[in-house]
Amino acid sequence: MADTAEVGPGPLAGVVVADFSRVLAGPYCTMLLADMGATVIKVEGPGGDDTRQWLPPERDGVSTYYLSANRNKQSIVLDLKEPRDLQTAHELLDVADVFVENFKPGGLEKFGLDAASVARRWPQVVHASITGFGTEGGRTMPGYDLLAQAVSGFMSVTGDPDGAPQRAGVAMFDVITGLHCAVGILGALRERERSGQGQHLELDLLSSALSGLVNQTSGYVAAGNVPRRLGNDHPSLYPYGPFPAADRDLVICVGNDRQFLKLVGVLGLAELGEDPRFATMAGRNTNRDELRPLLVEALATSSADHWFEALQAVGVPCSPILGIDEGVEFAASLGLAPVAQAGEGDDAVPTVRHPVTYSRTPATYAKRPPTLGEDQESVLEWLRRRRAE
């Protein structure tokens, strides 16, 4: 294992992250930090991260769920119930800048790794704790993303108006919490440059969900509005969603009156742009039931590909509805290079690239997601060298 001073040119080169998290929110956060050059030591119990067993799908017998959030990390196995392993955990905190964990509230106290103990013994460390529902009334609730989708109100606004509430097709609040955690850590590291002190960051899935619901929660908090399921419609914009063409659906997103004029012009319905029922966004929202059949009738005269090209040409936001496979290929066709090879040679693993493009300090993909404990000896030797300095 290279010393932290030798890590690549990323913006977080030299930052050491002790990653005691598992599953998705924490690992996704620490992977982003690792992509930016931080040295991330992934500490796993003897059974390993739960997601190692979450398959199919798999690649060479390894869960792709695990692969999605663990590149660029060093893996060691520590059983915190064993005195020697607990000592190693403490030694890791001695050299760490950041400590990320998602243990149940109170679960780390017996190991001297709770917030109060960390602040006392390692005051320089930025300590990020991720829970499902906080440390007060929700401390006993398991931190599953689907539970957060349910209680946040997300499922109540997802699905057809007359159908059942629906979950998202991905653990979206785990991902949002991971993003919030990464942002919080960067802010705390910046503040530490001024004060020389770390601090404790608390994140939970529910708070991240309520923040991530943005206009929906704001509508209730600021105006008392309780949103309802609208299927694929938007509560404040119309037309904004999928519409059937002659062969398949096409997503059309009209965000202002100018775009509506362009849309109806292409569809041969220019008169609708002057119709007082539809000329303004407020009018279109109120009269969407009258407007929709007129748009559908016009769209039915040609294919989705035809309308996509015609609407794109005049600047009306629209897109086909693609599968995940097609979405990756579409991103590639736009020059976005969505796939990055983590690791080198035959051991490299294709992963979805870091979402930020840096002009001077690009994200790196030096190491494939590690097997359980594969870096045990090199990390322990690195810690011995650090203690001797």
Rank of each mutant, 00 (worst) to 15 (best):
A164R: 04
A164L: 05
P165W: 05
P165K: 01
Q166P: 00
R167M: 12
R167Y: 09
A168V: 07
G169D: 07
G169I: 08
M172W: 15
F173E: 10
T177F: 13
T177V: 10
G178C: 09
L179I: 13
L179P: 03
H180I: 12
A182P: 12
A182K: 09
A182N: 08
V183K: 08
G184Y: 09
I185D: 01
L186S: 09
L186Q: 06
L186E: 08
L186R: 08
G187W: 04
L189Q: 02
L189S: 01
E191G: 00
R192S: 01
Q197K: 03
G198T: 00
G198R: 00
Q199N: 01
H200A: 02
H200I: 01
L201P: 02
E202I: 01
E202N: 07
L203G: 05
L203Y: 06
L205N: 14
L206N: 13
S207V: 11
S208E: 08
A209N: 06
A209I: 12
S211F: 09
G212K: 02
G212F: 07
G212R: 03
V214M: 13
Q216W: 11
S218T: 14
S218Y: 12
G219P: 14
G219E: 04
G219R: 07
G219H: 10
G219W: 06
Y220P: 12
Y220N: 08
A222D: 06
A223D: 06
G224T: 07
N225R: 00
R228K: 05
R228C: 02
R228E: 05
R228G: 05
R228L: 03
R228Q: 01
R229Q: 12
L230G: 09
G231R: 15
N232K: 15
D233S: 15
